[in-house]
Amino acid sequence: MTSQSISTDVYEQAAAWLERLDNGPLDKLSKRRFINWVDAHPTHKQMFESMLITWSSPTLERALADAKQTITLKDHLRCTPAIRWWQTAFICTALVIGVIAWQLTPNQPSAIVHQYATNTGEMRDIRLEDNSEVTMGSASDVYIKFSDRHRLVNLKKGAAYFDVTSNKQRPFEVKIGSASVVAVGTEFNIDRGQYFTDVVVHEGAVEVAGSRDDKPVLVKAGEQIRITGRTLGLVQSIDISRTVDWRSGWLELDNESLHYLVERLNRESAKHIRIDSPALNDIRVAGRFRLKDPGQALNLLAEVYGLKIEETAERYTITRLP
């Protein structure tokens, strides 16, 4: 096995563990497997530590705390290098959440990490230190880390529109799980959902990759691409002048799933919207829906697609008509 394939395997393994930790505390068996993986080879520790900064979140912090508590109770791991590293990594994660400087390695310049989040129904404009601008959609969460050589954004959830100031010596990278979108100076929109992410380029061009070691795909102005996990879909041409996205307050769909629509309406709705049966998730829907009025959008949906909307003080429930 070549060193390149080893690096790729370790990267994918580290990304998989980070994804699992970001979903919440591990069970007892998974904790043991994780620590065994970390302790198996120095490259595992190094890879996990280098990726930790781009995956930081409150959920991850809690999972790390839970795993750390379990690890320190194990006699054979007491005072080992792996434990000392784990304690350091855990402390570093807490510092990231606290928005202060953290130096990942002795050879990497320190940088400030900022977290920005929006509530349900809220949009927010952010001007970054390089004069790039980010417009965050509702119920979105981003981490931003700038160094002298790199501009890094981690879009944890939701949607964001990026207007990037050109700097060829300082690439602007947006991470979406293991995938990435890299720009120099351009404008693009990223909408991250539960199952896939859409990237639409409005000006300039970006390079999109499913993982660190994948060959990137060039996506130019007037084109879009869908990312599913580490898999890239086909680049498709669109008419930007006629494109309607979340910034307009409307959602225009053509043959998307009901799950896709409900997920985006939930970003705006004060009442949670749930689909009663998994069998309804894949119903294909089309039309223009007003994001700021989820009740009206659901009534339209029910009328056109023969569904029933049940409303209580806390939620909307979508069911089939009897």
Rank of each mutant, 00 (worst) to 15 (best):
V184W: 03
I83T: 15
I126D: 06
N131T: 15
T2L: 12
N107T: 15
S140M: 05
A286Q: 05
R247L: 12
E310D: 15
W102G: 14
E303Q: 09
I273P: 03
K168A: 13
W37D: 11
L321V: 07
K68C: 14
N266R: 07
L261W: 01
E311L: 13
Q236F: 02
A117W: 04
K175T: 08
D282A: 11
D125S: 14
T93M: 15
K74Y: 00
A15F: 08
A82Q: 10
A205W: 07
L253M: 05
E311Y: 00
L253D: 04
A279T: 07
H41E: 06
M136H: 12
P278C: 05
I112K: 13
A179R: 06
L261H: 05
E223A: 04
D22K: 04
A111Q: 06
Q46N: 08
I318R: 08
S277R: 13
L21N: 03
S237G: 04
E207I: 08
E173C: 07
H272A: 14
E311M: 14
A101E: 14
I91D: 15
Q236C: 01
N255R: 14
D125H: 10
W246C: 11
R288T: 13
A15C: 06
K215I: 13
S211R: 15
D214K: 03
L21I: 07
L253P: 03
V99Y: 07
E314C: 07
G24E: 00
I35K: 00
S3I: 13
K68G: 10
E263K: 07
P171L: 03
I91K: 15
V244P: 03
L218H: 00
R170T: 06
Q46W: 06
C92M: 12
K175D: 08
I100A: 10
D130Q: 03
A89P: 05
Q103S: 10
N119K: 13
G204F: 02
A270M: 15
Q4D: 14
T72G: 09
